[in-house]
Amino acid sequence: MYSFDIQRPTSVADAVAALGTDEALPLGGGQTLIPTLKQRLSAPSVLVSLSGIAEIKGVCTGDDGALCIGGGTTHATVAREATGYPALAELAGNIGDPAVRNRGTIGGSLANNDPSACYPAAALASGATIVTNTREIAADDYFQGMFETALNEGEIITEVRFPVPEKGAYMKFEQPASRFALVGVFVAKYADGVRVAVTGASEEGVFRWTEAEKALSSNFAPEAVDGLSVSGDGMISDLHGSGAYRAHLVGVMTKRAVAAAH
């Protein structure tokens, strides 16, 4: 680790001000950022810890019925308190291990947008809104490729609003070493249609499988996915599986998510 200063603001306004300095980075749970610092792959001069900001923590229900999760809420809190959206609570409860879940935050996960992370699938499949200190961003506009998002420098995720589906489920096929998603599929059935988001598979990061969405919107049953497939081109190919294998798993996990949706 290189040396850095740390600031511990207690309000979003103070955090934004602190982030105005050169080479400042927000620190969520540190589950991604701290290892990066330890490997000296990142050298911020200031870390602005968000964990002391009460206003971006916690789970509640909005006036429109959406589940609202503060950007600084840990995975463990979501797993415990997002009872209104069981599929989301289950997803959070299967991220990493207890230590990771007690530190890592939804804001950190979405800001990082790891192509194998779980939350991006939930946000995209739910048509969630990413709320920052300056604006509201629709999930469809937010994810812009591996580790790329619509966030500007110094912008903080303060809240994520998830419209609650009639039924939903997340199916994660774990990469055996990291236990991130080798392929993860989040299926959410709303009154106006089904959304399917896939993580872990594509070199472009999380994506919607529109073909399956169409089929499932007319028949929300595993068989509806039969015969549909995504192409292995553009899929991640590594030690743990070829692009073709990942493409195959997208189909399998989608069906399983539909079968498990509740």
Binding site: P176, A177, L239
Partner: peptide
Amino acid sequence: LENCAYDENGQLLSASYMDYA
């Protein structure tokens, strides 16, 4: 699970627990 793998350039592909199961 366990697979210590090198690519053709001799780079260690499974260099951490993210990839070495």
